[in-house]
Simulated scan of single mutants.
Amino acid sequence: MIDLSPLVAAPGASSLPYSDPAFAGRPLVLHAARPRQWHPATPVLLVHHGVGRNGRDYRDYWLRHVDAANLLAIAIEFPEASFPQYLCYNFGNLHAAGGMANPRRQWTFGIGTRLFEQLREQGITSTDRYGLFGHSAGGQFVHRMLSFGYRDRIAVAVSANAGTYAMPDLSTAWPWGLGVTEVSTTDLRALLAFPLTIMAGTEDTKTTGRFFPGGPKSMRQGPTRHARAHAYLRSGQQAAARLSVALAWRLVDVPDVGHDGRLMSDAAAPLIADALGRDADR
């Protein structure tokens, strides 16, 4: 087991090579932002970067908030060399490049949950649940992760400016829906009842650039990332009505912000701090 204590040895920024037990020989990097008044009861936030695999930058986006928000932020960096392309990251490694399904133990969606358990085992946190934030490709990772469970230890989750969505629809095939996966109607009800926050920059409307998902199946979800976020919420509303369940999702539009990880982190910080604070008091 890797000693995680360097992440909280001193206030401010730190980084630590890390290996998940399910992915031996495929290194990750943990980038932590520790508040000055940290102690084991301090809430934990796990952060998922975008397609640039720039975990250090996302840690720094949150470094400016950890004291006011009273949280320990840890950005999990998935290096391209270890977890190549979108299959391993955005889509959670559910399938290999040839389309063969991987066993659940090899899904990258479980990495954060196992990291949190190690933080608990090593006494770095005494909290029962953690917060989750993902932007862009990280926003894809977060909402797809929640779609397959992994929710028991999560107090608050924010998916920001995702490029595409796994709609809560069992008739639409993965990864644009949840069809042809192990997700059942019962699982879908639990997903819709989870308090997911979808964040969308109102100016996230740029459709040029090599990282914008512009294929036909992606474009069916909407012409821009902002439009797709609203389509995801509508799909959740429709699914909740069909299944007679109260939808716990909400969508927060962030005015005058485009595809910007720093500004979306700034907008998410007070929402996450409030939710983690209330969770600590429960």
Results as ranks from 00 to 15, higher is better:
residue 221 Q to D: 04
residue 231 A to G: 11
residue 259 H to W: 00
residue 130 Y to T: 05
residue 176 W to D: 02
residue 234 R to E: 12
residue 223 P to G: 00
residue 91 F to L: 15
residue 165 Y to Q: 12
residue 72 L to R: 02
residue 17 P to Q: 00
residue 151 R to H: 09
residue 169 D to L: 14
residue 191 L to V: 15
residue 215 G to Q: 10
residue 175 P to A: 05
residue 22 A to I: 02
residue 4 L to T: 00
residue 280 A to E: 10
residue 206 K to P: 00
residue 29 V to D: 09
residue 217 K to E: 15
residue 96 A to I: 09
residue 107 W to P: 08
residue 188 L to C: 03
residue 150 Y to A: 05
residue 100 M to P: 04
residue 194 F to I: 01
residue 58 Y to E: 08
residue 159 S to K: 09
residue 142 V to N: 02
residue 54 N to D: 12
residue 181 T to D: 14
residue 3 D to K: 07
residue 231 A to F: 08
residue 129 R to N: 03
residue 137 A to G: 15
residue 209 G to T: 03
residue 214 G to L: 01
residue 119 L to A: 06
residue 111 I to D: 02
residue 211 F to T: 11
residue 110 G to P: 11
residue 46 L to K: 01
residue 181 T to H: 12
residue 51 V to C: 07
residue 218 S to K: 02
residue 148 F to A: 01
residue 192 L to T: 00
residue 152 D to H: 05
residue 180 V to Q: 14
residue 233 L to A: 03
residue 237 Q to G: 13
residue 249 W to T: 04
residue 88 C to F: 05
residue 273 A to N: 04
residue 34 R to Y: 00
residue 74 I to H: 06
residue 102 N to A: 14
residue 212 F to Y: 15
residue 121 E to I: 02
residue 234 R to I: 02
residue 177 G to Q: 07
residue 63 L to T: 07
residue 102 N to V: 14
residue 100 M to K: 11
residue 217 K to L: 15
residue 110 G to S: 13
residue 231 A to Y: 01
residue 209 G to P: 11
residue 239 A to R: 08
residue 99 G to A: 13
residue 22 A to F: 12
residue 255 P to S: 01
residue 171 S to G: 11
residue 134 G to C: 14
residue 267 A to L: 10
residue 192 L to Y: 06
residue 15 S to G: 12
residue 87 L to Q: 14
residue 28 L to C: 07
residue 163 G to N: 14
residue 120 R to F: 04
residue 149 G to Q: 10
residue 38 W to I: 00
residue 184 S to G: 06
residue 32 A to E: 09
residue 16 L to P: 07
residue 124 I to R: 01
residue 92 G to K: 06
residue 17 P to F: 00
residue 119 L to Q: 05
residue 245 V to Y: 04
residue 64 R to H: 08
residue 245 V to A: 01
residue 101 A to E: 13
residue 201 G to W: 07
residue 90 N to L: 12
residue 246 A to D: 15
residue 93 N to L: 10
residue 190 A to D: 12
residue 219 M to L: 15
residue 148 F to M: 04
residue 152 D to L: 06
residue 115 L to K: 08
residue 127 T to L: 07
residue 50 G to H: 13
residue 62 W to L: 08
residue 214 G to H: 05
residue 74 I to S: 07
residue 191 L to H: 13
residue 261 G to N: 09
residue 1 M to I: 04
